[in-house]
Structures are given as C-alpha cells and as structure tokens.
Nucleic acid binder design. Structure first.
Lengths: 161, 161
DNA sequence: CCCAAGTGGTTTCTCATGAAACCATCGCGA
DNA sequence: TCGCGATGGTTTCATGAGAAACCACTTGGG
C-alpha cells in the first residue's frame, strides 16, 4: 500500500507518473537513434528496421505482410519504407511464385553492404545506452519493458471487448 | 562480455533490440492512456498534462513558458493545448502583472472539477499497469527509465557539441 | 467455370508533431 | 529616453503516422 514513488495525492508530480517517464525515455532514445541513422546513412528508423530484418540471415526473402508482423509497423509504413529502399537500390522485389499479389523482398548487393555497416552502429549504440548498467539490470530492464508492453496491450483489449 | 540478450551476430532479432522494445512498450502504454482520456473526457494527452500540472496544487497559476519546462513539451504543443482548454472553459488566462507578454493560466471551477475526476483515472491506470509488478520492481523500473533517459540525452549532446 | 469473399498491397486523406518565421513586449546599455 | 537584442507567445509550414478507401489477385463454394 505504500509505494513511495506512487502519487500520494498531496505531492503528485508529472515526472513521477509512469506513462510520462516511459514516454520521455522512449523519445530520448529514439531521437538519438533516428539522428544517427539519418546522419550516417540517410535512413529513417522505419527503413532501418526493414533492412535489419531482411539482413538478419534467417529471413532471406519475405513479403511485406511478413514484415508488418515482425516489425509491428503499419502496412502502410512498411510499404512506404520498402518503396524508398527500392528506389535507393538497397532492396529488390522478385516475383512471388506462390502468390501473384505480392512480391518477395530481399537486400541487393549494395543493400547487404550497407547492412553490414549499419548493424555495428546499431549494436554500438545499444551498448553505449547500456553503459553503466549492470548485466543484471540490462536483462531486467528488457524484461520489465516486455511485461509492461504485454500488460498495456491486454488492458487495451479488455476495453474493446 | 556475455550478455545473452545482446545480439550475438548470428541470431539477432529486432525484438531483442532495446530501442525497439522501448518504443513498443511506450506506444502500447500511451495508446492505452490516450484512449482512456479521450473516451471519458475528450482530452488529448497534451491537454491532460497541462491540467494535471495546473491542478496539482503547488503550481497554482503559471505561464506557458513554465508549463513547457515542467511537461517537457514543445511550446507550440503547450500553446495549442491551452487554447483548446480555454475554449472548453477548463482553464482561464489572467493578465500577468509582472510581464505583459504572457498570461497566467489557471483552472476554472469546471476545470478543477474535471481535474478531480481525471486524476483518479490516471492513478488507477498506473496501478493497473503495475499490476503484477512487485514494489521493488516498480521502483526499479522507474529508476532504469530515468537513467536510460539521462544516458540517451547525454549521448545526443555529445554529438551536437 | 464463375462468382463472391478475403487478402496483399497501394493510394489518398486526416491529423498530430515539431521547425521556423513572426509579432509584441521587456530590459538593458548608450 | 531611445534603440536593440532577447524572450513569451502565436501562426505557418513541412513531415510522419495511421485510417479508410481502393485495386489486383487468390481461394473456395455453387
């Protein structure tokens, strides 16, 4: 019943409100990331995500539909990102034998080469962000984030049912 | 050197990438919150934040400038939210004796009354989100978020210097 | 074989956000 | 006191994300 960090009614502050803290932290991190990708490769985060998935080995070629599931981005966002990447020659579409409505997307040679440069930057950034976090804290942070995500999603579901 | 959750080069996955996890969790939470405020009070998150600050007692009347600092929102966002709240009659602007450029903002009677309804909803939502988190985990989650925020901000600063 | 419903993808529209330009007022130094 | 840079606030503009409408193709039932 006594969680010091929970508002007490008397001295409440926005900066101690969880959704606010989460939003602030998330914005700070994604601004940093976005800025780095943009500056060095001219990639937006959405575009980077697509490349990251296509380049990660296990997913050689896949449809936009598959990408929307893996990245949890809107199908419109995926489509736009793919269009840009295709125009830049970083990915290509090959016909999908199994289904004429879609194409299979894969990295081009140039795309792969960019991918090999981009990933180290991403990993380095992640490492820098975690600098000063004990290994246990890193793992726990990820775990708490996942649980919070699941929890929020389930509360949202309740409401729509 | 061996953080299992950090990518190993061979089996990397987007869903284990910190900035991605953070973004997913944050979106889930703010979607939930936004939906609740909207449905019950027709308030956007930005508007709610303004009301929360103006109503929290210690901040009786303040300028937009002060609000931008407390809420960390853009001054444009603050201005827009205030405009809407004023039109809805939830806050009012009184002349600022000390500086003719600005006004002092405060809740109206109706604003205060809404505020008294809104805050319990916010706190209840926070509590629901933390359901299943041990008290220690709650505190640690907040602390980790803050540290991550500070860390990201400092990395971003490095870059601009 | 044909039609209807469903699905992948694309385009269009709307809205929210942040940057930059802009206006009015303040406060300091000549 | 005059003028000029700085500051609070407002408006305008460009960009990004999601909703909805739309097109093309597939699939399953007459």
């Amino acid at each position: 019943m006594n969680d010091k960090t929970l508002a007490t009614g008397d001295e409440w502050s926005l900066s101690g409100f969880l959704p606010y803290q989460l939003s602030i932290a998330s914005n700070a991190v994604s601004d940093l990331i976005a800025e780095r990708y943009r500056k060095r490769f001219g990639l937006k985060v959405t575009e980077w995500r697509i490349m990251a998935v296509l380049g990660d080995g296990s997913q050689r070629a896949c449809t936009q539909q598959a990408l929307t599931q893996v990245t949890r981005m809107d199908k419109v966002a995926v489509n736009r990102a793919c269009k840009v990447l295709e125009e830049r020659g970083l990915i290509q579409r090959v016909p999908n034998e199994a289904d004429g409505r879609s194409h299979l997307l894969e990295l081009t040679e140039e795309g792969s080469s960019i991918h090999r440069e981009v990933m180290p930057l991403a990993l380095a950034t992640e490492r820098e962000l975690f600098d000063g976090f004990a290994p246990k804290e890193r793992a726990q942070f990820r775990e708490l984030l996942d649980r919070m995500h699941v929890r929020a999603a389930s509360l949202a579901d309740d409401r729509t049912k």
